[in-house]
């Protein structure tokens, strides 16, 4: 269908043009251009005005220089500990949550793959179902569970196991819990699809050769399921890194993940240029590992 002939009627060329250009220009205007603007504003000065950032160019006569760019925002990010801490904490929380998701998700995916086909579909359905229901409300469910007067505390109190409620909500632990809870389907599904395709004969053969169960697992199943592990980890790690809702609902005041810092910088301090600089740095932190991963995958294949 690759025709670049001269005799193609105009109408057909127009259709081809439409199919390509419509989504292309939409994304160029509403996705690519915004990043250019973020990048640009990250070099601007905050001012008390509407909008709250300085102009980039100054063509008025008598201006010192027509280009008004400043590296102040980036300098500020590197100098103020707040940002270092937020970036580091985001990486830490995202990494640990990914590992926790893997630890819970792997056996689940494995267990589902081992079930009868009928049961398997039902269990899969049960894994996917929460994903289709509201994310915000599922996070809220943990507020109901963990609060000082929440379900868990009241149960423990009633049973007499504790006398004063435990602080669970508004802690880092709650953030981990929330992230694992909301992103576990993203871990289970890719793992399941790899494990489900895996050849049972391989395992039986290994078992025949006298490998113990855990040897079979570490020598055969785990290496073969690495694509699923990587896919699932990326699907959890990337959104967790920029997560805003979970730390702001379940975390304490000090649970400074970068998404939340950015949000606060923007809405509370109204420092748009600084928020843009934070976003630019975050973008690099996310894009660089993805590009590295993709190029390593390309090399392998």
């Amino acid at each position: 269908m690759s025709q670049a002939n001269h005799s193609i009627p105009l109408g057909d060329k127009l259709w081809r043009w439409l199919v390509i250009s419509l989504p292309y220009w939409w994304l160029a205007i509403f996705f690519l251009a915004p990043f250019a603007i973020v990048f640009k504003i990250s070099f601007a000065d905050p001012v008390v005005a509407q909008p709250p950032f300085s102009n980039f160019f100054d063509f008025s006569p008598g201006a010192e220089s027509w280009l008004l760019a400043t590296l102040d925002n980036y300098r500020f990010i590197t100098e103020d500990n707040l940002y270092w801490i937020s970036y580091f904490k985001s990486l830490k929380i995202a990494t640990i949550s990914t590992v926790l998701c893997l630890l819970l998700g792997y056996p689940m995916a494995y267990g589902i793959a081992k079930c009868q086909p009928g049961t398997r579909n039902i269990l899969l359905m049960l894994v996917i179902l929460p994903f289709w229901t509201s994310f915000l409300l599922r996070v809220y469910a943990w507020i109901v569970m963990l609060g000082k007067t929440g379900a868990i505390n009241s149960l423990l109190l009633k049973m007499g196991l504790i006398t004063t409620p435990i602080e669970m909500l508004y802690t880092d632990g709650a953030v981990y819990l929330g992230i694992v809870y909301t992103y576990i389907p993203f871990m289970v599904l890719p793992l399941y699809s790899v494990l489900e395709k895996m050849d049972t004969n391989l395992q039986d053969a290994a078992a025949d050769l006298g490998a113990r169960r855990w040897q079979v697992f570490f020598n055969i199943i785990l290496p073969l399921s690495m694509p699923g592990v990587i896919a699932g980890s990326m699907l959890v790690f990337i959104p967790a890194l920029g997560e805003f809702v979970i730390p702001s609902l379940l975390g304490g005041i000090d649970s400074l993940m970068i998404g939340r810092t950015l949000y606060d910088e923007f809405f509370i301090n109204r420092d748009w240029p600084l928020a843009s600089a934070v976003a630019t740095v975050l973008l690099f932190i996310i894009v660089v590992p993805i590009m590295l991963l993709q190029s390593s995958q390309k090399e392998r294949s």
Binding site: F31, V38, G242, F266, A279, L283, I286
Partner: peptide, 20 residues
């Protein structure tokens, strides 16, 4: 451009669209 929105943190997408 098709792949990027899938991995972009919502805070960045939101911020950049607002600035646009």
């Amino acid at each position: 451009l098709i792949a990027a929105p899938l991995v972009m943190p919502e805070v960045i997408t939101g911020l950049s669209l607002l600035l646009l």
